[in-house]
C-alpha cells in the first residue's frame, strides 16, 4: 500500500456530488443490513433458554395464572415472528419499547447511560492518543533505538494481560491498599460535585482502558510511519535540507495518519457500546453494564434497543471510516 503525498482532488464540486451519491448508496445498503441484524439478534435472544419470567421464580405467590397473564401483557404469548413484527413496527413509529423490568422506555434508559459511557470513553480516547502519537512517532523515527525497544516492550506488556486483571490489580493497590483513589463509581456520594472529584474517579478506569488501547495505536502509527519514511518524497524533503521535525510533521505524519484515522473511526462504535468489563470492575454506570444487567434479566426490549443502537453506530462509523479514508487519499474512487 503506497500512499502518495496528498495531491489535489479532481474538482471539489465533482467530488462532493460523487460523494453524496456514494453516501446515499451506502446508507441504502445499510438499511437491509440493519433489518437483517435485528432479525438475527431477535432469533438469538429467543433461542436463549429461560426468559423474562424467571424474575418471578422466587415468589411463590406468583401462580401459573399470574404468569400466563404477565406473558400476555408483555406480548410474549404471540408467535415469535409476530412479536418481532410488532417490535419493528413500533420502532419505525419511533417507539423503542418499554423494559419488562423497569417499566420504562428503552430509549430513556439508554439515554441515561450513554453520557456516562461517552465521558469515560472520550477521556480514555484523549489520553490514549496523547500517549500513542508521540510514542508512536518517536518509536518509528528512532527505530531500534533503546526508546523504541522500551516503548515496544511496554506496549506489548500492556496488551498481554486481561483487562479485568489490570483493573482488579489497580483497585487492590491504589484503592484498597494505598487508599489514594476510590475503588469505583463516578463521584463521591452525598458530596457536592466538583471537577476534581470527578477526575479522581476517572483515573483508574481510564488508566485500565488506555493501557490496553494505546498499544494498538502505537503499533499502528509506528508501522505506518516506517512505511512513509522510506518513501521518495520524504527523502526528497530531507535532501532539501529540511530538519527532521519539519519533515515528520509536514510530510510523514500527515500521510501516516491516514490509516490511523481510519482505525480510529472504526473503533468509534466501541465508545458508545462501552467497556463492559472495565465498567463492571469500576462500578461505572455505562452502556456495557446496562447490557449485562438486561442480559441477566432477559429484558428483550432493552437488549434489542442496545443492539440496534450499537449496530447502527458500527455501520455509521464504517461508512465514516471509508469516507475519511477516501478524503485523505484521493486515489480512491467511489466506484
Amino acid at each position: 500500500m503506497v500512499l502518495a503525498a496528498t495531491g489535489e482532488a479532481a474538482s471539489p464540486c465533482a467530488f462532493a456530488s460523487l460523494m453524496g451519491a456514494y453516501v446515499l448508496r451506502r446508507v441504502a445498503q445499510a438499511v437491509p443490513l440493519l433489518v437483517l441484524m435485528t432479525m438475527v439478534v431477535y432469533a438469538l435472544l429467543r433461542a436463549t433458554p429461560g426468559g423474562p419470567m424467571s424474575m418471578y421464580e422466587a415468589d411463590p405467590t406468583v401462580t401459573a395464572e399470574d404468569l400466563a397473564r404477565l406473558r400476555a401483557q408483555m406480548g410474549l404469548d404471540q408467535p415469535v415472528p409476530v412479536q418481532y413484527g410488532r417490535w419493528v413496527a413500533s420502532l419505525v413509529a419511533g417507539d423503542w419499547g418499554w423494559s419488562f423490568v423497569t417499566k420504562r422506555p428503552v430509549l430513556e434508559m439508554i439515554g441515561e447511560r450513554l453520557p456516562n459511557t461517552i465521558l469515560l470513553m472520550a477521556v480514555t480516547f484523549v489520553v490514549t492518543l496523547a500517549i500513542a502519537i508521540p510514542v508512536g512517532i518517536l518509536s518509528a523515527v528512532r527505530q531500534y533505538s533503546w526508546f523504541d525497544h522500551v516503548a515496544t516492550t511496554v506496549a506489548f506488556a500492556g496488551n498481554s494481560l486481561p483487562t479485568f486483571w489490570i483493573g482488579l490489580m489497580l483497585v487492590m493497590i491504589f484503592a484498597v491498599g494505598l487508599r489514594w483513589l476510590p475503588a469505583g463509581g463516578m463521584y463521591t456520594l452525598g458530596a457536592p460535585p466538583t471537577i476534581g472529584d470527578r477526575l479522581r474517579y476517572l483515573i483508574l478506569p481510564v488508566v485500565t482502558l488506555s493501557l490496553f488501547d494505546a498499544t494498538h495505536y502505537i503499533r499502528y502509527l509506528r508501522a505506518a510511519l516506517l512505511d512513509v519514511i522510506r518513501q521518495d518524497y520524504v527523502r526528497v524533503a530531507y535532501a532539501k535540507g529540511l530538519d527532521e521535525a519539519t519533515v515528520i510533521r509536514r510530510h510523514a505524519f500527515r500521510n501516516a495518519a491516514i490509516p490511523l484515522v481510519t482505525a480510529i473511526a472504526l473503533d468509534l462504535p466501541a465508545l458508545f457500546s462501552g467497556a463492559l468489563i472495565t465498567e463492571t470492575i469500576f462500578a461505572w454506570p455505562g452502556m456495557g453494564r446496562l447490557f449485562w444487567e438486561a442480559a441477566s434479566r432477559v429484558d428483550y426490549p432493552v437488549l434489542m434497543g442496545i443492539f440496534t443502537v450499537a449496530s447502527s453506530l458500527v455501520i455509521a462509523c464504517n461508512l465514516l471510516a471509508d469516507l475519511v479514508y477516501a478524503w485523505l487519499d484521493p486515489r480512491i474512487r467511489y466506484g
Binding site: 433458554p49 463492559l276 443492539f307 449496530s311 455501520i315 464504517n318
Partner: peptide
C-alpha cells in the same frame, strides 16, 4: 462481512456463550 462487523461482538459473544 459487513453484517458480521456490524454485530456488536462482545454482546453477541455473551449471548452465544449463554445459548
Amino acid at each position: 462481512v459487513d453484517f458480521m462487523i456490524a454485530l456488536p461482538s462482545i454482546f453477541v459473544l455473551i449471548l452465544l456463550a449463554t445459548i
